[in-house]
Each structure stands twice: as structure tokens, then as C-alpha cells.
Design a protein around this nucleic acid. Structure first.
Lengths: 223, 223
DNA sequence: TAGATTGTTAATCGATTAACAATC
DNA sequence: TAGATTGTTAATCGATTAACAATC
């Protein structure tokens, strides 16, 4: 029985629903209709209902959705009812920032190891986890469950290190390196490309400026 | 004369084209066809040609695209021929990581100020830029051009600080706070939601595991 | 029951891919 | 010129929105 995979557009929206529902929950809101939620989130009510119905009927006609229930269910869909063991490969600024971000732990992502090639960093403690030398990576991965490896190393070493990680058994990589890793298809890769994000902002900055100049020019032309 | 805005899907792909072209350029590749590039990038040649032709005809029939020319042109489209002054609001781990990331400077994004409410951080130097107390933000923004503010502060203060920044004249925010900022429409916001990224990975992790279990169960059922 | 709102089907819209004439 | 490959139009596909019957 083949279930066709949910489109990535839908999946990409789930964490945002989850966040809004979490906020409603904190504010003791018990129920919400797709219409109310759509107004808060600036999306159509139709889209909310369509998205949710990919996963099941969580609402009730005439009532709407129970906030707590829907929050929990989306959490399950997102796999947040599980515990993940994460390692951080590359203890530079970004790696340390991620290691220090307590929020991930709250969501079930536990940082179990931090690794760096730089021997000077070895032994440094970050939120209770010791930085280890990179050469211990293989034995660590083989001896401990590692569900996710966050990759925060320089671009140059990324292809080799990523291939090593996969070979040693890591099956999901959270990739901060500005490169597309090519790995066996069973290894999941989620990219965070900061430079690309900044370039999108830069594109829009320029587009806005040019639109404004055009408007100004038209005005002074008396159009 | 109204030019209809380019779809965000197209814009989102430009930085990736730019990256691949930069790599080709480093490897002294002079020309490339949409077909060759499509194989490297794992997209269709049709999409590449469509995307580029939103901005103009950069290629030549029978020849393909000149790598250096196309790289430069996409750079201009992305606004990378300009210089931007950026400030970082929040000198925590993530703010420091961004401040330390030299690559942005290479692309024309210059970090001109780093601010934090924590007085202990004041005076600390990060890549030649001094961390200043947050109360100096207003005067700094009013007295210096600030094109982009990277927002790396806790969620609680974000709505207020973002509104302040906008009021003082910042017109583009690179938002790392896990919240949707509501600001006047002329203020551009580009979000980097790390938690959402991690949740997407987590979704796929779970989906893969369940697919594998299903497959295994079917096998042992002799299907 | 009447009113509200879902779940779901149908219509629309937009984005991607295919095809090919134009042209280097 | 012949071959290659673009730029662009047309066809397809998928995602979003609208509509409404089902139902709480």
C-alpha cells in the first residue's frame, strides 16, 4: 500500500503552524477555527484545512480545532515526540552557537558530541558537552547512536567529512556548509545556506530601491 | 511602465546558480550550456533558461553561456555589485558567529556595528568591530547608514526591538528570531528560522524510518 | 434544530517542463 | 553551411483557492 509522499511545500509550512499553535496554547486559547488562524498567519483558511487534511481530520465541524490537540498532533507529525541524538562537527563560531542554543534540547534534539580538528579546542566545555578531537569521530559514531550531524566546518573539507560521516553510519546531516553535499540517497540532508538567505535579502533591497527610484523619476517627469 | 515582480521561487534559485558559476569560474571553465549546468545542478535545462530569461538573454545560440559574464550578471541582479552596511543586534553566540563569518564581507556586506544589552559585552572586539551597548543603537542608526540589521536576540524582545529599528530608519532586517515580525511594509524581512529547518529534517527522518519499517514488515509478511 | 465550520471536491492559478523556431 | 543551443511559446503538472455538502 503506497502512500504518496507529502509535498515539501506542505511540510515546510508545518513548523510555522506548530509555532503559532504553541503561542496560542501559551495564551490559554482552547479552540481556533481555520478562519481565525488564517487571519493571524496571513494565509488562506483553505490552505490550512488542505494542509492538515493531508495528515488526518483533526478538526470538528461547527467547532474548529482544539489547540492543544492539534499542537500535539503536528508535533508528532514533525517527529518531535522522539528524542534525537545530535553531534556537531566543527566547533567554530557557528558550531558553538548551535551547541549553545538551548531551544533545540527542548524540542528533543540532544547534543551528544562536539568535534573539531583544532586541538586547542579539545576539552573545552560547551553547555556541559566536551569538545573532542575530530579523529575520535569515527569511534564515537560507531559506538553511540547519532541521529543527526550538524555540519559547521569550512567548505573545503565538507565533501570528505560528509562522506566519512555517511560511511560511519550517520544518516541525516544538517548542513551549514555553502555547498551541495552529494551523498548516498538514504542520507537525508537539510541545508541552511546563510549566504543564500542574505543574497535573497540583497536582491529585494535592490529591487525595492530601483522601484522607488523609478517612482521618483516618474513623478518629476510629471507622469 | 509596470514590470511584474519576479516570483520568489526564481529569486530563491539565483544564489545557487551564482554559487555554481563561481565554482566553474574558479576551475577556469569559460563556457557552459544550460544542459551541462542542469546536469551538475540536478535541475532541468529548461528551468535554467526560463529563470535566466526573466532577466535578459545572457546566452548565445549554438554556444551556451559565458561563465564569467553570467556570473557577473547574476551578481548584479542579486545586488552584489553594491556595498551594504550591516549591524548586528544581539551579540550572543549566533550574533558573534555571524560577525565572524568573513565570507559576507567578501560579498559586499560590511559589519559596521554590533550591539548588545549586556553591559559586560561592551567593548569586546569582534573582527575589528567593537560591541556597543544597545542604548547607542538609535544614535548610531541615525548618524550612520545602516542598510541591513541582523536580528539575533531572544524572542521576547524581538517585536519591540524590531519596531525600534524600523522607526529609527532601518529598512531591511535579517531575522534570526523564531517569530514573524510585523513591521511597516517598506521594511524588508528575510527570515532564517533554524528551528523550522531542524523540524523539517526531523519530519523527513521520521518519514524515512516509517517507510523502512513498513518495507520490513511487508517482507516478513511475505508480500 | 440552526449555525458554524470542517473535510473534500472542483476550479483556478502559477510554476515547471517540453518543444521548436530563431540564430549564432 | 551544418550543428548546437538559446530564447520563447505551448503543454503539462502541481499547488492554491473557492465552493459546498457533510456534520458537529
Amino acid at each position: 500500500m503506497y502512500e504518496k509522499p507529502i509535498s515539501s511545500a506542505v511540510i515546510a509550512r508545518l513548523p510555522r503552524y506548530y509555532r503559532y499553535l504553541g503561542e496560542l496554547l501559551e495564551n490559554d486559547v482552547v479552540r481556533i477555527s481555520s478562519k481565525e488562524l488564517s487571519e493571524k498567519m496571513q494565509v488562506t483558511a483553505s490552505q490550512i484545512r488542505q494542509d492538515l487534511n493531508h495528515f488526518g481530520g483533526f478538526g470538528q465541524q461547527g467547532y474548529g480545532y482544539n489547540v492543544e490537540y492539534l499542537y500535539t498532533e503536528i508535533g508528532k507529525i514533525l517527529g518531535l515526540d522522539r528524542k534525537y541524538h545530535m553531534i556537531i562537527v566543527g566547533a567554530g563560531n557557528l558550531g558553538q552557537a548551535i551547541a549553545n542554543y538551548a531551544d533545540f534540547e527542548r524540542r528533543g534534539f540532544y547534543i551528544k558530541g562536539i568535534f573539531d580538528v583544532n586541538p586547542e579546542l579539545a576539552g573545552k566545555m560547551i553547555r556541559g558537552v566536551e569538545v573532542r578531537p575530530a579523529r575520535e569521530l569515527e569511534s564515537f559514531i560507531r559506538e553511540n547512536p547519532v541521529h543527526i550531524a550538524a555540519l559547521t566546518i569550512p567548505k573545503e573539507n565538507a565533501p570528505r567529512v560528509a562522506a566519512d560521516l555517511a560511511r560511519w553510519g550517520v544518516r541525516a546531516i544538517w548542513n551549514f556548509v555553502p555547498a551541495d553535499l552529494s551523498l548516498p540517497k538514504e542520507v537525508l540532508v537539510e541545508n541552511v545556506h546563510l549566504t543564500e538567505s542574505l543574497m535573497r535579502l540583497s536582491y529585494n533591497l535592490r529591487a525595492r530601491d530601483e522601484a522607488e527610484e523609478r517612482r521618483k523619476a516618474e513623478q518629476s517627469n510629471g507622469i
